[in-house]
Structure formats: C-alpha cells, structure tokens
Design a binder for these strands. Structure first.
Length: 573
DNA sequence: GCCGTTTTCGGCCCGACTGTTTTCAGTCG
C-alpha cells in the first residue's frame, strides 16, 4: 500500500473522529500523521511493519499499530467501528468549504441528512435555516459551494507553472496601481511547491482599500468577497482562490513570513518561539510576559528575532529547516545562475519543435557553456524514433557545429535519451553509445510492472557503464499519473555505487526526481543534474523549476553536477 | 494521539472572517 493511500485512510479517520466529537488535538494528531506519511520519501507501510514508523514525527505506537492493521485488514479497525455509528458519507460533506464537522454533525443529528444530494435538496427547500445557528446565508453558501464543486471540481490543486503565471499577472496588475507599495507573491507559489491550491499576495499600500478594489477589478478575477483595508479574498474566472493581504510597511516581514508558510513551518516556528517566551503572528513577535512587540519590515528580522538564520522560502516545509537554522547549518542553496549547461533537450530529429541550431542559439543566449542534444531513441515510436544511423549522423552534425561555432565558451554535446526496455536493456548497441558524450536512460514504455521487475529494470540501466544519467526516474506526471511502482531507495543505492547521475527533470509536470527523493539521492552521494527536457527553445526556461526542486531538496551548487564545467563534469562520470 | 531546553502529564500556533448571535462558535489558512 502506498503512502498516499495510507495517508488518505488517516485523514478520513481524523474526520470520522471529529464528527464523533473527539478531542480536537486527537483529530489534529491524525491529520499531522497523515501529512507526515504523505510527505515521506520512504514507504511508511514497510517502516511500520519493521516497527520503525515511530521514528517519523507525529507517529507514535498507536498510529503505527493502526498502520499495520490497515495493511493487514485493508481498513483501520477504529474507522470501521466509527462507520458503524456514523454514515461514511458524512466525511464528504465536511469537504464543502464553510461546512465543518460540527455543522455536518448537527445537521445529521437533527435531520438525518448524510449525503451531498440530501444537503442540496434541504438547502434548496430552505429546511436548514430552522436549525439553531444556521440561517438563509448558510443555505446560499451551501448551494453555491455545491455548484462550484460540480463545475470546477473539489478545490483541486494546480501545477505551479500555471499558478505562477496567473500570480505574476495579478502582482503586475496590482503594482501598476497608484496606491500600491510592495506587492509580493507569497504562499506555496513562493516556496516553489510542485502544486498549489491558491494564490497568496502580500502588499503594502498608501490606500489599502483602493488596492483591494483594484484586485477585484482585475480582468482575471471573477468573483470576490468584501474588500477592506486588510485586503480581500477573490477567485479567478478559472476558479483559483486569491488571497490579498495588506499591512503597514513596518509589519511587511511578519505578514510575508506568515503567508509564505508552510503551515507546518509556521507551527514549528511558533512552538519554538513559545519556548522562548514569544508569540509569533502576522502582526509581530510579542513577549508573552510583557508588552514589547517586535515588528519586522523584512523576513530576515523575523528569523533573527527568533535566533535563527534566514531560511529560504523553498525550505519552509516544516522538515528540519528550523533546527538547521538554529545551529547555523543551513545549506547554501544552488541558484539558476550557478547552472552552466543543460543536459536534456530534444530537437526536430525526434519530437522537438526547434532545430539543433535553434536550440544551440537559445542555450548560448541563456549564457550556458554547453548543451547536450538528447533526442529520443530507436524504439520511441510516434514516428519520432531515431535509428542508429540517424543518431550517428547527428553525432557528426554536432561535431560540425562545434567545429564551426564552438569555442571555449560554448559547445554542443552529442547525446541521446535512450529508452530502457522492459528487460532493462538499452535501445542502441554499445558501439553506438560509445560515440556519445552524454547518455540519459529513461523509461517510456511498460509503466505497469511489479515493483520488483520495475526496480530490477531501472537498476540494470543505472549499472550500464555507458549510461551517464537516469532520466525522470519515477515517471510521475503531477496531477495526472502516479509514479511507477519503484523502490527508489534501491535505484539511488545502485546509482551511488555505479557512479551514475540522476536527473531532476524541470518539466513543470514532472519535477522528477521530486525534492524529497532528490535529497536522499544527494545524501547518498549521487551527483544530481538539473535539466529541462526542453522540446522547444522557450522551455529551456524550465530550468527554474529544476533548480527550485533542487533548492527544496536543500542542495548546494556542489551537489548539482551541471554547475561544473563540462570538463569537470566528465571527470565525475 | 503525540511529545519533552518546564514536563511521562498536561499541554498542543495564531488570527481573520462569517453568520449568527447579543458575545461567540465555527471554519479556514
């Protein structure tokens, strides 16, 4: 059973307990455990069986036992018992925005309503406003929320690339307003998370209410709440929630820190502050015994007041960044400026949109010293396959390009993205691969294999002496396709032993390796390569996403191989 | 249910907003 399924079971259990009226901290404990499980880069089921899941934060003996029971019985016994007392469909009702467990339970107790359809009918008939604490406004909100979910889905997450694009447009629109001071994109988009649920914007303004109105007036905004001097909440036409918060410049650092999150990071920060006798909020850092309040114009001031080094947004996920900051041991994160070349791109020879010369020119424009041309291999299919003869001609074309345009400042590398066959074999004979500067091995077929077979298959490719790098190792497509069933630990161990590099693919749908696995790989000594997998000149810019993932993994420039010159990188191979 | 620079018991981040109330509970991020 995968971490995601285990986590879902504990989220459900938390809600069932909440509906049952359990202590709210117990509910929180299940939610925290679910988050830890979903976040873990290692299979928590296996850990629990080995009695080691309690090493994870927020998982004690009780939850570990429940994980094992879930694996053995397909269900958590406590959840089964609760579902005998309460309809399981009540859990769905709590997912309606503005409708929580307390409200769902009261409605169920007083009317017997337990389904979304039942709730809609009762709200439409005005049957809920008779209940204590619920009025006509509540019924309107329920109907609106149901309509929105039907039209747009359940507050679904979106790719970071989509959210950053819309966020940047909104920020630019606000900055152009006469009342605007600072306007900054915050939240998960600022942390460069894989996916985002909403857009958070932090601002200062000479006339805050006017700036809040300016957001509502933006072309992208469809609906909005009540604007005030504190900001406004709104929603884009395509359904993304937008939260604008406005504060005096003297508190901008406090608010930016607060709204950048993550929630887990802020909770840990505030718990630590409490131990120091301090209370942290978006308005300042207050002494618990006393009146002094520290307001910070910038974030560095917030962390400094708490005795911490500045923590980059990409690291603020509530993992170990606070203890590292406390000890002055935060890594110096790799930046896009450190990257000296891209090692994964396609041209019109396979499925790319631009020619070799166009890709080379775009790479030079980005200031790169090298670009590896890595078109798909012989069995790629889709009419985009590159037979061995075509590839060898391409090697000559690369040599010709370098002879004519190459210099110490820039050169092309002859490469290939070679399919890994179902048996772990590669798509070209060794004497062809030997002609290449750079070989990426990737899986593009037969995704649904057993974990054992898929792991053996990829480990075999990683151990091949002519393979430089493993491409998009888990095959995940964010929000679209689950990763292959794969023992990532075993692949990392094999790469470390064989001296094979592993890619962080910067296609915003991939980000593969993901940040947590990339950290494990780097800790195992595997050189990481940040690439774009660009299929056109424009997407060479996706290096931002690859590097962001590396930063979220806590990687320094030294751990990213393509911060080196090509001559230095070659020595690592 | 978890956890320990005060603790194996007694706490558990903090505030904004909403709708319903006559001072606050519920929900959310």
């Amino acid at each position: 059973m995968h971490n995601a399924e285990i986590a879902a079971a504990f989220r459900e259990l938390g809600t069932l307990y909440e509906l049952d009226g359990a202590n709210r901290f117990r509910v929180l404990a299940y939610r925290d455990a679910a988050r830890t499980i979903a976040e873990s880069p290692v299979p928590v089921g296996e850990l629990a069986r080995a009695g080691r899941a309690t090493e994870l934060e927020g998982i004690g003996d009780t939850i570990q036992e429940k994980i094992v029971a879930l694996l053995d019985e397909g269900e958590i016994p406590a959840a089964r018992k609760l579902k005998q007392r309460l309809p399981a469909t009540l859990v769905e009702l709590t997912r309606l925005p503005g409708v929580g467990a307390k409200t769902v339970r009261r409605i169920y107790d007083e009317t017997g309503i337990a389904t979304l359809e039942g709730l809609r009918a009762a709200a439409a008939a005005g049957e809920l406003s008779g209940l204590r604490g619920l009025g006509p406004k509540f019924e309107q909100n329920v109907l609106a929320a149901l309509d929105r979910i039907e039209a747009e889905g359940d507050g679904e997450r979106r790719l970071l690339s989509d959210v950053r694009e819309i966020g940047a447009e909104l920020v630019a629109g606000l900055r152009s307003h006469a009342a605007a001071g600072e306007v900054i994109l915050a939240g998960s988009a600022r942390r460069w998370a894989d996916t985002c649920k909403d857009i958070d914007i932090v601002a200062t303004a000479s006339d805050p209410t006017a700036l809040a109105h300016a957001l509502i007036g933006h072309d992208l905004i469809g609906e909005a709440g009540n604007p005030s001097a504190n900001g406004v909440r709104a929603r884009t036409h395509n359904g993304i929630a937008v939260d604008l918060r406005i504060v005096p410049a003297a508190e901008l650092g406090n608010l930016l820190q607060h709204l950048t999150g993550s929630a887990a990071h802020n909770v840990k920060l505030r718990e630590r502050a409490q131990r120091m006798g301090l209370s942290v909020s978006e308005h300042g850092i207050a002494e618990i015994e006393g009146d002094a309040v520290t307001r910070c114009a910038d974030e560095a001031g917030v962390y400094a007041r708490l005795g911490l080094d500045y923590i980059e947004p990409e690291l603020r996920e509530g993992r170990d960044e606070i203890s590292l900051a406390e000890r002055g041991e935060l890594p110096e994160l790799v930046t896009v400026a450190d990257i000296r070349g891209d090692l994964h791109c396609h041209t019109t020879l396979s499925d790319g949109r631009n020619t070799l010369a166009e890709m080379a020119a775009a790479a030079r424009d980005r200031g790169y010293a090298y670009l590896a041309i890595t078109d798909h291999s012989a069995t790629h299919g889709f009419g985009d396959d590159v037979q061995a003869g075509d590839l060898l001609r391409r090697v000559d074309e690369v040599a010709a390009y370098n002879a004519e345009h190459g210099s110490r400042r820039f050169r092309l590398l002859a490469g290939s993205e070679v399919n890994i066959g179902a048996d772990g074999g590669l798509d070209y004979p060794d004497d062809v691969l030997e002609r290449l500067d750079w070989v990426i091995a990737s899986v593009h077929t037969s995704f649904r294999m057993s974990k054992r077979r898929m792991t053996d298959r990829i480990v075999a490719a990683v151990r091949h002496p002519l393979v430089s790098c493993l491409g998009h190792p888990t095959g995940r497509l964010l929000l679209r396709r689950e990763p292959y069933d794969l023992d990532v630990d075993a692949v990392i161990a094999a790469a470390a032993e064989a001296g094979t590099m592993i890619e962080i693919n910067g296609n915003p749908s991939r980000r593969d390796l993901g940040d947590r696995h990339a950290r494990l790989a780097a800790e195992a000594g595997v050189p990481i390569v940040c690439t774009t997998d660009a299929h056109r000149t424009r997407t060479l810019a996706n290096m931002d996403f690859a590097v962001a993932t590396a930063r979220r993994a806590g990687l320094s420039a030294k751990q990213v191989a393509n911060t080196r010159t090509w001559a230095q990188l070659r020595k690592l191979l």
